[in-house]
């Protein structure tokens, strides 16, 4: 690409995406599913490109609170969505729950850990958790571990990831002896980690529910709303189901 091309890009970086594409800020656990769904959405909507900003729901919510130019927010928990609703940063009319999840205890492939209680053992030196203050999967994990009476012990061994994918990376690389992530993340890395056990959502912790909504002040509210509604269509729901998500009804 020549110099002129770069300069032209410079102008377009600023203008074009604002006009043409929508930016979806989505929980990291949705990474694989949304990449796939984004492609379908673009195909069925005259090529509207969907750009994703994946991160922890807490960090994304703070960005949107501070005025980040997102069009859609898809959270791994109702809490962050409620925070944005109270601050009038999302449109409540467009809010829609489109998936559910559960947690999984994972270890590197060569481990003999048998259940959550095994986390107490001295051989488990480091446990990867998501930061419970900003990452929903960490919050659910804290809730479950507290219920199991393990939180104080596990907290002393915890290394905290800033989003669920980072938490999983600690386990994949063997830097942590065990970790708690969403069951869908465990499934997506099943060749690299061993899944020990799943939690029972609703019993061990609140059901991880995924809501999506249009962000207030979106430059493309119609397209953004279409994306939120699209999540409940048959094809996206099938994609979510195949990746291990629970369906809203």
């Amino acid at each position: 690409m020549g110099g002129a091309g770069v300069r032209e890009t410079g102008i377009r970086v600023y203008n074009r995406p604002m006009e043409e594409e929508i930016l979806v800020s989505a929980a990291s656990s949705l990474t694989d599913a949304f990449r796939e769904i984004g492609k379908r959405f673009a195909r069925e909507n005259g090529g509207v490109p969907v750009r994703f900003n994946f991160g922890s729901s807490g960090a994304l919510a703070r960005q949107i609170l501070a005025g980040a130019p997102a069009d859609v927010f898809a959270s791994a928990s109702l809490q962050e969505m409620d925070d944005l609703e109270k601050a009038e940063r999302i449109s409540p009319k467009t809010k829609q729950v489109f998936a559910t999840n559960t947690l999984a205890l994972i270890t590197p492939p060569k481990s003999s850990l048998a259940d959550f209680a095994g986390l107490k053992a001295g051989s488990i030196r480091r446990v990867a958790l998501s930061n419970p203050d900003t990452v929903p999967s960490g919050r659910y994990a804290r809730e479950a571990l507290t219920r199991f009476g393990l939180w104080d012990i596990v907290r002393a061994k915890a290394v905290f990831g800033e989003n669920v994918r980072q938490t999983m990376t600690y386990v994949i690389n063997g830097d942590a002896d065990a970790g708690i992530v969403f069951a869908t993340d465990s499934r997506s890395a099943r060749s690299k980690v061993r899944e020990v056990k799943r939690t029972q959502p609703g019993l061990d912790h609140k059901v991880p529910v995924y809501p999506a909504a249009v962000v207030t002040g979106s430059a493309k509210p119609e397209v953004a709303h279409r994306f939120v509604e699209f999540l409940l269509y048959q094809e996206p729901q099938r994609i979510l189901y195949e990746l291990g998500f629970g369906l809203p009804r």
């Binding site: 690409m1 770069v6 032209e8 410079g10 377009r12 074009r16 673009a42």
Partner: peptide, 24 residues
């Protein structure tokens, strides 16, 4: 579909868009 339409008509992957954005 152009998931990374940084340069308009040119299809860019994450790498190229991060590189050009850095230069800009």
């Amino acid at each position: 579909a152009r998931p990374n339409s940084l340069a308009g008509g040119i299809r860019l992957n994450d790498f190229a868009s991060a590189f050009l954005l850095s230069l800009l």
